[in-house]
Amino acid sequence: MTVFTRRFVVATALCAALGLSLTACQAEKSEPQGWDSSEVTSWAIDEPVTEADVLASVEAATTLKELPNKVRKADLVAASGDDQKAWALPNCTPTIDQTKLDDLGPCTIGDLESERKIFVVGDSAAAMWYGAFDLLGKRTGWKVVMLTKNNCGPASLTYYQWQRGRTFTECTEWQKWRTGVMQTEQPEIVVLTGWYGGNLGPGKEETPQVWREGLVKTVKLLPETSKVVMLGNTPHPATPPAECVASNPNDLPTCASDPAQAVPDQTGWSGAAKDVDATFIDVTPWFCADSCPAIIGDQIVYAGKNHITQKYGRYVSGSIEAKMAPLLGKQA
């Protein structure tokens, strides 16, 4: 089955679950889950949602039964698959073969005129935060560079390329290149984030201690003046939550994840932060309370099961901003 055919079948099934014809489902207008790179700098600077409001929304979402009216049916279809349009910054997704970027322009967001720089470093689970950091940069006067490559995490480790069934040598070269870029650019803040768990290859155990040591190694390669933030992992649902919601719009608790199963071990992040005097941000409370809901605050949280939508990233951008306030030169 081709990728196109599989997407068509999935879309047909979801539209049927929603009581729509495929034509009607495709035709329903919705705010795109991603944006064109040409539009990045023209988005409105939203007033940030406070962390207190996010936490209240998470708590409320754990008991929500029915799909809110503001959640568009077509967006559920779009978010059911792991489509990069839902989370990746357009024109800033290096191919497997790329080991460097000749131009950081497409990967630069936030306040483009600022001399103060934040670098966000990691894999696709770092790239998915671009919506949050774009708004954070615009609101606080920081230029943000998304230095990300899919499956090439922030920890200085040897990764595995699952698609090609071999060591991800291009990632190793990318890591060397990104270190050189940061030594040249001297960012004031470096945010390390990404996917923890299972990217080292067959038979190689990725323990919290291994992750911790890899993160510490990365920090030791950074400019001495850079302040470091460890942004912990988001939950890892077992199945795509949006697909579940499409099939169960009147029984949302069915689509929530158990935190004991979905929340990854964060001790590698927190331990590394302690070792290098970095700031650790545990994002779990922005996603989970008694459960980890699929819909929070009228927002579709996940794109597929491996990423969050950029829309939800924007929703919690104020929470990141509050945690980073001491480094950004403002009070929380």
Rank of each mutant, 00 (worst) to 15 (best):
L200A: 13
G313C: 01
L147G: 04
E243I: 04
G304D: 13
A56E: 07
E321H: 08
D97H: 09
V216T: 04
T158M: 04
L112F: 08
E205L: 10
R6P: 02
D290N: 15
N233K: 10
M146P: 06
A88Q: 02
E31P: 06
A242H: 11
G34R: 12
K176R: 14
L89F: 04
R116C: 06
I96S: 11
E206T: 06
C244N: 13
L135K: 08
D265K: 13
P240Q: 11
W129G: 05
S156K: 12
A294K: 06
R164Q: 04
Y312I: 01
P154Y: 00
Q161Y: 05
D83N: 02
A246Q: 09
A303P: 07
I296L: 13
E39Q: 15
L22F: 01
E206F: 13
C152I: 04
A132R: 02
V216L: 12
R212M: 15
G271D: 14
G180E: 13
V228D: 10
H236P: 00
S80R: 03
V316I: 14
G194R: 03
V40F: 07
C292P: 02
Q26E: 12
S257A: 15
C244W: 07
L231C: 05
P264T: 10
K73M: 07
W269A: 11
E243M: 13
S247R: 15
L20D: 06
A88P: 03
A273D: 00
K274T: 02
W177I: 05
V49P: 09
D53S: 13
T93P: 07
F119H: 14
Q84F: 03
E243T: 07
C171L: 03
R178E: 09
V229P: 10
V40W: 05
G137Q: 13
T193Q: 03
P249G: 14
M128H: 03
Q209A: 11
D298G: 05
P235E: 08
T62L: 05
F280R: 08
M1F: 11
P264H: 09
R314P: 02
W286C: 08
G165M: 00
V245Q: 12
C15W: 01
V120A: 08
P249K: 10
V71P: 07
E185C: 06
P235M: 09
A86G: 05
Q183I: 01
N233Y: 00
G165H: 00
V216Y: 05
E115L: 15
L101E: 07
E31M: 14
E185W: 05
A325C: 06
A16I: 03
Y312V: 01
V58C: 01
F168C: 04
E59A: 12
Q183R: 15
G198T: 05
M1H: 11
V283R: 14
A246L: 09
N199R: 14
A17Q: 11
N150R: 14
F287G: 09
V40H: 11
N250P: 00
T63I: 03
P259H: 12
T239Q: 12
S57R: 08
L14R: 14
F133E: 09
R314G: 03
A127E: 03
A294N: 09
P90K: 14
V301E: 07
P235R: 10
